Computed example of a mutant assay.
Amino acid sequence: MTVTTADAKTLKSALRSDVKTWHALSFSTMEEVVNFVNLEPAQGAGEVEFSFGPDGQIWLMYFL
């Protein structure tokens, strides 16, 4: 699933729960990744990792 900045806030709010788990999403730009990570609740140290895919997408793994 490729996420845009417009969809990021809604998606992140929907994923919030009392139990934290790892999730993965793909983004088109690093700016979109940074915007998503900094949305409330912002991820802390060790709660985020990213990787560039062969198709140019940026895969974000985050703990929420």
Rank of each mutant, 00 (worst) to 15 (best):
T2M: 00
T2V: 05
T4W: 07
T4F: 07
T5D: 07
A6K: 07
D7G: 07
A8I: 06
K9F: 01
K9P: 02
K9N: 00
T10W: 03
T10V: 00
L11I: 12
K12A: 02
S13A: 13
A14L: 12
L15C: 03
R16S: 09
R16Y: 06
R16C: 07
R16M: 10
R16D: 05
R16P: 00
S17N: 10
S17G: 15
S17A: 13
T21Y: 05
T21R: 14
W22L: 10
W22K: 09
H23T: 06
A24L: 03
L25Q: 06
L25K: 03
S26A: 14
S26D: 14
S26R: 15
F27T: 01
F27S: 01
T29S: 13
M30P: 04
E31C: 06
E32D: 15
E32P: 00
F36G: 00
F36D: 02
V37L: 13
V37T: 12
N38H: 12
L39E: 02
E40M: 15
Q43S: 15
G44A: 14
A45H: 11
A45P: 08
G46W: 05
G46I: 04
G46Q: 07
E47V: 01
V48H: 10
E49A: 15
F50G: 03
G53V: 03
G53Y: 02
P54G: 11
P54V: 08
D55K: 12
D55C: 09
D55M: 10
D55F: 03
G56L: 07
G56Y: 07
G56Q: 03
I58A: 03
I58R: 04
L60E: 06
M61L: 11
M61A: 11
F63G: 02
L64W: 08
L64T: 09
